[in-house]
């Protein structure tokens, strides 16, 4: 009995390492990044588009706009495809085919982001340059690449949400003479909407946090984009591009960029948790 208590205590200590790691990350990112935000001034840091590390001017507005633009574009593409896939896999697909498709979609999640970036660079960018205009490196290119990259995440969580809808709902609807598609879009999507919303929010988190693929296809210009064919720089690529040679205030400003990213991600995570908790509290959907 004593031995069991000891084991329990050890396991508990180990189990706390996840939250401990989160605490350390929060602590160190903020310790490095927060002072310089306060020193520059919150308004100047977030609302200025002037990022000139050489002259100690650090404003990240254009990167915030860049991140948001790229993320929204990615979601526009990714959500449509993810929902389509989730619906096909749960409603219209024989289980055997689904058994083949699902691992393939998971494989899509396993491909390194640098490979996505590279493929985007050598295939999508020349196409955009040729047929849409602009330099090719653009919000559009990043949206397409990220749209594909968030697809596995959004699809698999949406599948869970759709599968969680009780079978009896479906049977009731079909018994009333509804076709499969009518049942899906009138009933299943509504019943699973909070789960799907959580999937979309988590997908946004992935898109906004993606770094390497984005660097390779956005062109990394510091201008606020006026069109979807304009190049942009995101918060993540700003850090990755400059961290290797940054020192002093410049490095601290990059940590401040990280703080911004961290806050956005935490907000999205909390939102996703709140949305899916409501689903659990609403009952019936487990």
């Amino acid at each position: 009995m004593k031995q069991d208590k000891l084991i329990k205590a050890i396991l508990m200590a180990v189990a706390l390492s996840a939250i401990g790691g989160l605490g350390l990350i929060t602590l160190f990112i903020f310790k490095e990044g927060l002072p310089i935000i306060l020193q520059i001034g919150v308004a100047d840091f977030f609302c200025s588009t002037d990022w000139s590390p050489g002259e100690q001017r650090f404003g990240i507005l254009s990167m915030i706009v860049g991140s948001v633009a790229v993320t929204l574009g990615a979601m526009a593409i990714g959500v449509v495809f993810s929902l389509g896939l989730a619906i096909v896999l749960t409603q219209f697909c024989p289980p055997k085919v689904a058994g083949v498709l699902k691992p393939l979609i998971e494989l899509l999640a396993g491909i390194p982001s640098v490979v996505y970036g590279f493929i985007g660079m050598v295939t999508i960018i020349p196409l955009i340059r040729e047929y849409v205009g602009g330099p090719g490196f653009s919000v559009l290119a990043a949206s397409i690449v990220l749209g594909i990259m968030v697809l596995p995440t959004v699809t698999s969580i949406s599948i869970d949400a759709l599968n969680a809808v009780p079978r009896s709902f479906w049977e009731g609807s079909v018994a009333l003479g509804a076709t499969r598609w009518q049942t899906t879009h009138m009933l299943l999507l509504k019943a699973a909407r909070s789960g799907i919303l959580a999937a979309i929010i988590l997908g946004m988190g992935r898109a906004i946090g993606e770094t390497m693929a984005v660097i390779m296809v956005t062109g990394n210009s510091l201008e606020i984009p006026r069109a979807i064919t304009d190049p942009v720089r995101t918060l993540t690529s700003n850090i990755a591009l400059e961290m290797n040679y940054a020192t002093g205030q410049h490095r601290k400003a990059l940590f401040a960029t990280g703080v911004t990213l961290f806050i956005i991600i935490m907000a999205l995570n909390t939102l996703a948790m709140a949305v899916s908790r409501r689903r659990v509290a609403g009952g019936g959907n487990r």
């Binding site: 189990a15 706390l16 996840a18 939250i19 401990g20 790691g21 989160l22 605490g23 350390l24 990350i25 160190f28 990112i29 490095e32 988590l202 988190g205 906004i208 946090g209 993606e210 770094t211 993540t236 850090i239 990755a240 961290m243 990059l254 940590f255 990280g258 990213l261 961290f262 991600i265 935490m266 999205l268 995570n269 948790m273």
Partner: peptide, 22 residues
Amino acid sequence: IRFGADCLAGIPSIVFGLFGFV
């Protein structure tokens, strides 16, 4: 503990990089 794990799962890799570096 679950909250910690969920949040860790959402943090972008570049932020992990910054943390690991410092």
